[in-house]
Design a binder for these strands. Structure first.
Length: 900
RNA sequence: GGGCAGUUAGCUCAGUUGGUAGAGCACCGCCUUCACACGGCGGGGGUCACAGGUUCAAGUCCUGUACUGCCCACCA
């Protein structure tokens, strides 16, 4: 650490950030000791794709988690944040396959083993990118506990879970209809299919009855599946077709005879009310086929080509088959109509290829059996924020279907199941078995498939902590405190972690789930490379500093709302970072020698009492906001305090103190300045770790009572304890009075075109002795901030005729204007002021004249309204009196202009 | 078809328990005041989407409508 004590004029984030990143990691500052005291606080990172690059969504996620972790440390919690990456099966395999394609190769040529090696090599080369980007954001993760979903330990956990679930009958293998991506050449889970409305056509086709007695019209959007038809289905109560039920129809072109069946599933309103049933190529037809014991004929293979069973169309692509069969049917005179229509088509979430329903043998997790426990755990054991997601959560769990977990790709955890070449029996085991568990034969062949990437992610909260070993991490930090992630992976990930965590650990994996928004562009569109509207977090960090980016994301993270981000926002908050920097710079000019301690309890001076009072409010407000995931509230109150109170008022107010020859007076100011600055740095540190750490380090060591604060570095400083003795409502009210007077003078000057730096005389006519004393005690503050030449506060003051005037809390504010000002503009100003009061008075009176308000509203509300009415009326009367006097003066034209 | 959000100042958004509508940016005016022009001071600007209802009192609670966005869903 450098030991420079002077701060540069403008904040230069680049070097500062690099320095602190390095320091935090080298000193293992965020590696917790399991034996350390304090409540456990833990978070597991939502592991980014190992081949991925950091996008703004990660930046938001990591920032919010970091805010929580840093705040938890401040609150004395034993805090663990586990970082790591996901092997991201299909996505990563696709990336490497693309690289191979660029070399003119494909994975089949390479062979499985070489291909997998190639992916590992790819990970070696590029896997650190995403980790460096996590570092760049200042994420306070424990790098000593870095994990990867395909680490040995995590892989062992995957096998253990698989075997146990299999033995419990919760994993099974079977032939079912699944979603098939012919480009990725693998099965997909239901939720890996994204449905999109697409233009298509609806063909009405005549199916002749087998007995030649007539025909039935059938509607379809997929004529290429006609060769796979094994029934025609109508609604049992559909009068049009009642006579046909039980008869047979002939499949067009092929002439195969299929039964006409009835099922209430059919929508009589749609199409012709008669549905062709193709059990192998449609999820619903699959269900119908099973229910009615229909024949299953597969006519499209896994490459999208027509099978042998497609008769004349065998060998054609499904697209070509569609063209031909439509033409053939038309030629036969059986095409009744064609119309355009929109319908939903499923697409692969990884490559956007249209997904084909496909019958094949796959592995499944019996999610239907695991889901109820996950449902019951919320909100009893795990609370979801924002709460509105609970309905969606429940609905999904209530309607869950078994989870297809086998993928026909090579990158991932290979399924720990072996088939016996001799007897065909299946052996499922954690380690490669030497012999068949059934007949004892050797030479077992392992299943070719790998597991869905989300299978290993589902174990993440406990596999990263060393499960199935009984580790200290698990004992100390499981369950995790909160899961912070985007709602887009609520089902993919959160729900499955919940099911696995409950099943294997007996406890839900997290106490809270905080779902944050999606980051969109300024126009509300999803950011994507193809739209070209991405905001690159690293470029933003580079340009405006990481703290500016982090503050922006935090300030916009209102619960349950998407974030519309634009570069201007980040630029705007860079100003805030710079403001803090400069406030500190100012403070440093006066703190070179540490001030002598002053007891905050007995500190004199309204401005000191006031800032300490405000500090208490902000401290507790931010603390609570952090605890309740109201990130935007925390950021906003920190922002307002620092800029609008600390900088705009307090720093200005203590300038005379700091320059005073009165040593104790100057010392008090320096002490309170240092105290407030130090505390505000702590408060803002979770959001802006770099700039605050840098300033903290540059500050001279504190006075005796702050020795503990000054000693350590900011990242491990505790959250400042509440200081109840500094809560002073009266001081706050008094300060408000002083501020009102100052603002009134500034406004008068501005509106009358008087240069703000021009010193004027001011006469105050206080509303009473107490007010007079208050103003007198604080005359220097008013003189300085209102830029006055002279000030008198006298209850018996009479206003000179040529005066601008105003009223604050019953105190008349009179500013002789000495003819230098256009009298008409002061009149106009007064009238505007009076009109505003008039409006307020009318509103309050309306309320107070309302009989039922007075009788029914709580007494304190009525009282405060009455007080307000009295205050307004008083102010209005006083202002009117001043105006009256002023009007006379204008009429007299007796004002002798005189100048300063 | 079902569900969930949203609709507040020109723009982007706050507005915890109902009790005098706020911020940032943008805009207008003034100011090179010894931390900051990435600044200071002051100012203009809103019938809180619409229609009902509850209440002494509604941006806030309830019902309905419209529009926008998202999620789920088996109209082939």
């Amino acid at each position: 650490m450098t030991d420079q004590k002077a701060l540069a004029k403008g904040y230069e984030p680049k070097n500062v950030e690099a320095k602190w990143r390095k320091h935090w990691e080298e000193t293992n500052l965020f590696t917790p000791d399991a034996n350390a005291p304090g409540e456990a606080f833990s978070i597991v990172i939502p592991p980014p794709n190992v081949t991925g690059a950091l996008h703004i969504g990660h930046a938001l996620n990591l920032t919010l988690i970091d805010v929580l972790c840093r705040h938890a440390r401040q609150k004395g919690k034993n805090t663990l944040w586990i970082p790591g990456t996901d092997h991201a099966g299909i996505a990563t395999q696709n990336v490497v396959e693309r690289a191979l394609a660029a070399e003119g190769k494909n994975r089949r040529e390479l062979g499985r083993e070489a291909f997998v090696e190639r992916v590992w090599a790819w990970r070696e080369d590029y896997g650190h990118r995403i980790l460096d980007q996590i570092r760049a954001l200042g994420a306070s993760v424990d790098w000593t506990r870095l994990r990867f979903t395909m680490d040995d330990g995590l892989s062992a956990a995957v096998r253990k879970v698989f075997v146990r679930l299999y033995n419990e009958g919760l994993i099974y293998k079977g032939k079912y209809i699944i979603n098939w991506c012919s480009r990725c050449h693998t099965a997909l889970a239901d939720d890996e299919v994204e449905h999109e409305q697409q233009k298509g056509r609806l063909w009405r086709v005549r199916y002749h009855l087998a007995d030649g007695s007539g025909s039935i019209a059938v509607a379809t959007t997929r004529p290429e599946t006609i060769p796979g038809d094994t029934a025609v289905c109508v609604h049992p109560e559909d009068a049009r077709y009642a006579a046909l039920i039980g008869k047979s129809a002939l499949v067009p072109v092929l002439g195969r005879s299929v039964p006409i069946i009835a099922d209430a599933y059919v929508d009589r309103e749609f199409g012709t009310g008669a549905l062709k049933v193709t059990p192998c190529h449609d999820h619903n037809d699959w269900a119908l086929g099973n229910k009615h014991h229909l024949e299953f004929i597969q006519v499209i293979d896994e490459n999208g080509l027509m099978t042998h069973d497609a008769g004349p169309y065998a060998g054609l692509s499904k697209e070509l088959c569609r063209e031909k069969i439509v033409a053939d049917i038309a030629a036969a005179g059986d095409m009744l109509s064609v119309e355009n229509m929109e319908h939903a088509v499923g697409h692969c979430y990884r490559c956007r290829t249209a997904v084909e329903p496909h019958v094949s043998t796959q592995w499944f997790v019996a999610a239907t059996k695991l889901a109820p426990a996950a449902r019951d755990a919320t909100p009893a054991l795990t609370q979801i924020y924002p709460e509105s997601w609970i309905k969606t959560w429940n609905h999904w769990l209530d309607n869950i279907r078994d989870w297809c977990i086998s993928r026909q790709i090579w990158w991932g955890h290979r399924i720990p199941a072996w088939t016996c070449p001799a007897c065909g029996a299946l052996t499922v085991a954690e380690e490669s078995p030497a012999a068949c568990s059934s007949c004892g034969a050797g030479g077992l062949a392992q299943d070719e498939d790998v597991l869905d990437t989300w299978f290993s992610s589902a174990l993440w909260p406990f596999s990263t902590m060393g499960w199935p070993e009984k580790t200290t991490e698990l004992a100390r930090w499981y369950p995790t405190s909160v899961l912070v992630t985007g709602f887009d992976i609520l089902f993919f990930w959160v729900a499955r972690m919940m099911m696995m965590g409950l099943h294997f650990m007996g406890k839900p994996p997290f106490r809270h789930v905080y779902l944050h928004a999606l980051v969109r562009d300024a126009a509300g569109r999803k950011m994507s490379k193809s739209t070209g509207n991405v905001i690159d977090p690293l470029a933003m960090t580079e340009k405006y500093g990481c703290d500016a980016l982090r503050f922006t994301l935090t300030a916009f993270a209102a619960m349950g709302r998407d974030i519309r981000l634009s570069e201007e926002r980040i630029e705007g908050y860079r100003h805030f970072v710079n403001k803090l920097w400069n406030a500190a710079r100012f403070a440093m000019m006066h703190l070179a020698a540490g001030p002598e301690p002053v007891n905050p309890r007995t500190v004199q001076g309204l401005h000191h009492q006031w800032i300490l009072h405000r500090l208490e409010a902000v401290k507790s407000g931010m603390d609570q906001a952090f605890e309740e995931y109201r990130f935007n509230d925390a950021a906003q109150s920190g922002y307002k305090f620092l800029w609008n109170e600390f900088c705009d008022w307090y720093l200005e107010l203590i300038k005379p103190d700091l320059q005073s020859d009165d040593a104790p007076r100057a010392n008090t100011a320096r002490h309170v300045l240092q105290l407030a600055l130090r505390e505000v740095l702590v408060l803002l540190h979770p959001i802006m770790p770099f700039v605050t750490a840098e300033i903290w380090q540059a500050l001279p060591s504190g006075a005796a009572d702050m020795a503990d604060m000054a000693a350590a570095e900011l990242a491990v400083m505790p959250w400042p304890p509440a200081r109840p003795c500094c809560v002073r409502e009266t001081a706050a009210q008094h300060m408000e009075m002083i501020q009102e007077v100052i603002v009134a003078v500034r406004t008068m000057k501005a509106e009358l075109g008087i240069n703000p730096s021009q010193k004027v005389s001011l006469l105050l006519r206080p509303a009473g002795a107490a007010q007079a004393a208050l103003l007198e005690e604080n005359r220097e503050m008013i003189m300085t901030l209102a830029r006055l030449e002279s000030l008198s506060a006298d209850e018996d003051t009479t206003a000179p005729k040529a005066s601008a005037s105003s009223v604050a809390q019953g105190c008349q504010i009179i500013m002789p204007i000495r003819g230098a000002v256009d009298l008409a503009s002061e009149l106009a100003r007064l009238d505007k002021e009076l009109a505003k009061m008039e409006k307020d008075v009318a509103a309050v009176n309306k309320k107070l004249c309302n009989e039922s308000f007075v009788s029914r509203a709580p007494a304190d509300v009525v009282a405060s309204e009455q007080k307000r009415a009295a205050r307004l009326l008083d102010a209005k009367a006083k202002l009117l009196a001043l105006k009256e006097r002023f009007t006379q003066a204008s009429a007299d034209e007796e004002i002798s202009p005189f100048h300063v």
